[in-house]
């Protein structure tokens, strides 16, 4: 027993190393598998506060870019206004729409922390469970899909970016409605994605827009990007296709969290089906 204690104290550096390393790795592995350790992340109030303070300071440097993107979006919305269409008939009818009900609602939020140059990237937004945000909701910006909400605090939420190895979004070609999945490439380029699990017989052209399919969390037809390269490298049984992502992750400012009003119903039905 005495010899054992002497042995341990002589090599205490190594034994302490084992203890601390195992502690750190347990935290690391737990977080990856079960996503439990929400308290050590930027949706934590204290860390979030520091980020939003610094964000306020750096905000002024980006005003030009923000103005541009807002102006572009305004122009887009203006195009959809009733007043921008020429009315062809002189008879005015009032239609009480009972067929179309709103399925998706949008909550606007500001990005207060963002990363795009690591293997797995996350964003922090300044809306949380108080604004009705829950885990698993989709996040889009004016130019396309951004990511999926993973953790929520009362006032902040963490979003798993599209630039993450576990993010997989059901996608389709805008012209032919062929369905596949969009993942992030493993060469860490924040402007490129990969389209996988496509049928071989489908004819694909460079420049075709890629949008979300109806199977995803996002409204059908939300922009993902354009096909940039047809690398017919055979991986298992599908072709790999490179996609230029439409969202510029390096200057994300304002995003919208998408709430699907039918999501609960869909989940309940699909759970029944599995039984």
């Amino acid at each position: 027993m005495r010899n054992l204690l002497i042995f341990i104290s002589k090599y205490n550096a190594f034994f302490l190393f084992i203890i601390f390393e195992v502690t750190a790795l347990v935290v690391f592995v737990n977080y990856n598998n079960f996503q439990k350790a929400t308290f050590i992340s930027s949706s934590n109030e204290a860390i979030g506060n520091v980020y939003s303070k610094v964000d306020q300071l750096t905000d002024y440097l980006k005003l030009g870019i923000i103005n541009d993107s807002l102006a572009r979006e305004n122009a887009n919305l203006r195009n959809q206004l009733k007043s921008s269409f020429y009315v062809d008939s002189s008879v005015v009818k009032t239609v009480n729409d009972t067929i179309n009900k709103q399925q998706y609602t949008y909550i606007s939020a500001r990005v207060i922390n963002n990363s795009f140059n690591r293997r797995n990237n996350y964003l922090t937004i300044n809306r949380g469970s108080n604004a009705g945000i829950t885990k698993g909701m989709g996040v889009i910006s004016s130019s396309g899909v951004v990511g999926i909400v993973t953790f929520t605090g009362p006032n902040l939420a963490t979003v798993q970016s599209l630039l993450h190895e576990n993010t997989r979004i059901s996608a389709m070609l805008a012209d032919s409605n062929n369905v596949g999945s969009l993942i992030w490439d493993n060469n860490l380029d924040p402007t490129k994605g990969m389209l996988i699990n496509f049928m071989k017989q489908v004819k694909i052209n460079v420049g075709t827009p890629v949008v979300t399919s109806g199977f995803s969390l996002f409204p059908e037809g939300t922009m993902l990007g354009h096909i940039s390269k047809l690398d017919a490298k055979d991986s298992n049984n599908g072709t790999q296709i490179e996609v230029n992502l439409s969202v510029n992750f390096s200057n994300l400012q304002y995003v919208y969290v998408v709430t699907n009003k039918l999501a609960q119903e869909q989940e309940r039905l699909e759970a029944q089906e599995k039984q």
């Binding site: 750190a24 347990v26 935290v27 350790a37 050590i40 930027s42």
Partner: peptide, 13 residues
């Protein structure tokens, strides 16, 4: 550092 980087345990290890 992990708290700011959203990677619990990675930098600690």
């Amino acid at each position: 550092i992990d708290a700011f980087y959203d990677t619990p345990g990675l930098h600690a290890a």
